[in-house]
C-alpha cells in the first residue's frame, strides 16, 4: 500500500511521517513517532486509554485516521509537563494515589486536561462526566475524581502567580 506523507504538530513540535492511509493515529503515534504515552486498550473506542487532544478537542486516537490529522495540533500526556515542572493535574494524581497500575492514567489525565481547559471550576458531576469514557480497572474512580477536583482548585492560584 502506497504510503502518504503526513505533517502535524505533536506536543508543540512539528513532526512528519509516511503512513499507510488506513493507519489510525494511535499506531502512528506509538509505532511511527515513538510517543508511547497513549496506550492501546481496546482498539474499539471503548476504554479511553488512547485519549489525545486534537486541536484542543478530546479524541480517541484508535478511532482517528492518522491521515485526517494533517496540519493538526496534537497533545498527548507526554507533553503535559512544562519542562521539568509537572502539570498540576499530574501532581494531584500523584498526591491522591490516582494511579495504581498506571495504564489508564495517560487517558485519564488527557480527559481531565480537556475538562479543565474549558471549565476551570468543574463540579463533581462535571468531572464524572468528563472521565466517563475512560475505564480504570484497579485504582477505582474516587481517587481520580478527587485528584481532578483538587487540581482544579490549585490551578487558578498558580495562574495568578
Amino acid at each position: 500500500m502506497a504510503k502518504v506523507p503526513l505533517q502535524f504538530r505533536l506536543n508543540g513540535s512539528d513532526r512528519a511521517a509516511f503512513v499507510d492511509p488506513a493507519d489510525n493515529l494511535l499506531t502512528v503515534l506509538r509505532r511511527g513517532l515513538n510517543d508511547f504515552g497513549p496506550k492501546y486498550g481496546c482498539g474499539q473506542g471503548t476504554c479511553g486509554t488512547c485519549s489525545v487532544l486534537i486541536d484542543g478537542e478530546l479524541r480517541l486516537a484508535c478511532l482517528t485516521l492518522a491521515a485526517a490529522c494533517e496540519g493538526a495540533s496534537i497533545d498527548t500526556v507526554s507533553g503535559m509537563a512544562d519542562g521539568p515542572n509537572l502539570n498540576p493535574l499530574q501532581n494531584a494524581f500523584m498526591e491522591h494515589f490516582a494511579a495504581q497500575c498506571g495504564f489508564c492514567t495517560p487517558g485519564m489525565l488527557t480527559a481531565a486536561k480537556a475538562l479543565l481547559d474549558r471549565n476551570p471550576n468543574p463540579s463533581r458531576e462535571d468531572v464524572i462526566d468528563a472521565i466517563a469514557g475512560n475505564i480504570c480497572r484497579c485504582t477505582g474512580y474516587e481517587p481520580i475524581i478527587q485528584a481532578i477536583l483538587s487540581a482544579a482548585r490549585a490551578m487558578p492560584a498558580q495562574r495568578r502567580s
Partner: peptide, 25 residues
C-alpha cells in the same frame, strides 16, 4: 510516602511491555 513508579505513571513514561521501539519490528 510517594510510590517510586508514580512519576512514570503520570508522565506516560512508565515502561509497559509495548512501550519499546524496535527497528524492523
Amino acid at each position: 510516602v510517594q510510590r517510586q513508579d508514580m512519576p512514570g505513571h503520570v508522565t506516560g513514561r512508565s515502561p509497559f511491555f509495548d512501550d519499546h521501539a524496535f527497528e524492523g519490528l
